[in-house]
Design a protein around this nucleic acid. Structure first.
Length: 426
DNA sequence: TCTGGGGTCCTAGGACCC
DNA sequence: TCTGGGGTCCTAGGACCC
């Protein structure tokens, strides 16, 4: 199965790189980006990594290091990152007939049949240069016959500047050399649990791993492990995935401080999460058959009793209607109204069991006029698109966001909000 | 004091049926 | 007192990814 060629593009330290585009003075300086509520470190520049700041570390634990080394700190600014991501993906799509957007900062290009290694290296460097100049984001490109090997190659491209951003694993010799020098825990598809078991068995590098028998891998790690094992052998098992829509959509937040203790505020938050889910459903053209609401108290608090609410409801007819989904989510939450009186630290809504809008089975006893409701919702979406997020919304959301996040280090939404664009002094 | 958010896939085990 | 067995479907939870 040596026929496919995958090019995996990974944006380097993506969130940090986005902030640096508008703060060129921070190039070469240590920078971190924080999660919601300024809780955890979720992105680090190379300089911050070198200071020993770990991914996912609670911010309060690194305050000292941050102060001592003058690390620049940003609250996460997802409007900015989302917009930068769209720009990167749009440039990439010009280089391939098939682009598989894997996440906000990562995509796989189908490079099958485009040319030999020499051509691909030049083509790849062109891609890296184009994105660097066009969007200002540094990226790394790995090219190989499987996605897992391409991911590995992209990490080599990132690690060694001599590659000029592009690394190819295109021969048996290169594959073996790459595997021998690669820690098994860094392989795509091998997480903490698998790593622990592997190390217990003396498997330290990716090469050690592929030297084990398929039977052993199947026994220890089941089909997922075998898939990774085969991918490392060069046998492609993870195809390009062009699923037209997501299979579930989740909207959730944790709340600052001790969380929410007032039931009506939790209801407003859930209504907001539900309306956001509905908006995302319409964005990708799907309807949901089921809605799940959850809320739980902090798992780090031992001084007060904790609680967890999880409630699922089935929609009579798959829907993308804000009012219907908000209503269903609130009904579900209210089944647990006797669980008031706790400090809820995190809550969210998941919509799932999704189907394309065109395929929705209508219910014979459905009383709603879906044609009219659809027109109303489209009108509201259009108003909000022109006038700003949630200018028009359902009443259940409340007027104030009493559950708003803590964002002490926010940068501006330079590219998506006119009030916040950079002003150049002449 | 302060601990993210949004996904996918796989599996085990329960419910249910014959 | 005896108390099947196999198949399918569904769901919750875990592992993994960024």
């Amino acid at each position: 199965m040596k026929d496919g060629v995958f090019g995996l593009v990974d944006c380097n330290n993506f969130f940090v790189s986005c902030e640096r585009v508008f703060r060129p003075d921070l190039r070469d300086k240590p920078v971190v980006v924080l999660s919601n509520n300024d809780g955890c470190v979720i992105a680090r520049s190379n300089e911050s990594k070198a200071l020993g700041i770990r991914m996912g570390e609670p911010f309060f634990k690194v305050r000292d290091v941050v102060a001592r080394h003058g690390v620049a700190v940003f609250s996460s600014n997802f409007s900015l990152y989302g917009d930068m991501s769209r720009r990167v993906m749009s440039l990439l799509s010009a280089y391939t007939p098939r682009l598989d957007i894997y996440s906000v900062d990562e995509a796989v290009l189908d490079l099958t049949g485009m040319g030999d290694a020499e051509f691909l290296r030049g083509y790849g460097r062109d891609i890296v240069r184009k994105i660097g100049k066009g969007v200002g984001i540094p990226v790394s490109l790995g090219v190989a016959g499987t996605k897992t090997l391409a991911k590995m190659a992209s990490k080599y491209a990132k690690r060694y500047p001599a590659y000029e951003g592009v690394c190819l694993i295109d021969t048996e010799e290169k594959r073996e050399k790459a595997l021998r020098r690669f820690a098994v825990g860094d392989v795509w598809g091998i997480g903490r649990r698998m790593q622990k078991v592997l190390e217990y068995h003396g498997v330290r590098t990716a090469w050690d791993f592929v030297c084990r028998s398929e039977g052993w891998v199947r026994h220890e790690f089941s089909v997922a492990g075998v898939r990774t094992w085969r991918e490392l052998q060069g046998e492609s098992c993870i195809a390009l995935d062009d699923l037209p829509y997501k299979k579930s959509i989740c909207m959730s937040r944790s709340f600052p401080g001790h969380g929410l203790s007032e039931w009506h505020v939790l209801e407003e938050a859930v209504a907001y999460f539900a309306s956001e889910c509905a908006r995302k459903l319409r964005e990708q053209g799907t309807c949901c058959g089921q809605v799940t609401v959850f809320a739980y108290t902090s798992r780090f608090r031992t001084d007060v009793p904790g609680n967890m609410i999880q409630q699922q409801v089935r929609m009579p007819v798959p829907t993308q209607d804000t009012a219907e989904i908000v209503h269903a989510a609130l009904e579900a939450l209210r089944l647990h109204a006797h669980d008031g009186g706790f400090d809820y630290k995190k809550s969210g809504v998941i919509v799932w069991d999704l189907s394309p809008r065109e395929a929705v089975q209508t219910d014979l006893f459905d009383k709603m006029d879906r044609g009219k409701r659809g027109a109303l919702i489209r009108a509201v979406d259009e108003i909000n698109r022109k006038n700003g997020h949630n200018v028009v919304k359902v009443a259940a959301l409340g007027a104030e966001q009493e559950y708003a996040s803590e964002r002490q280090y926010a940068s501006r939404r330079y590219t998506t909000n006119l009030d916040e664009v950079l002003v150049v002094k002449v």
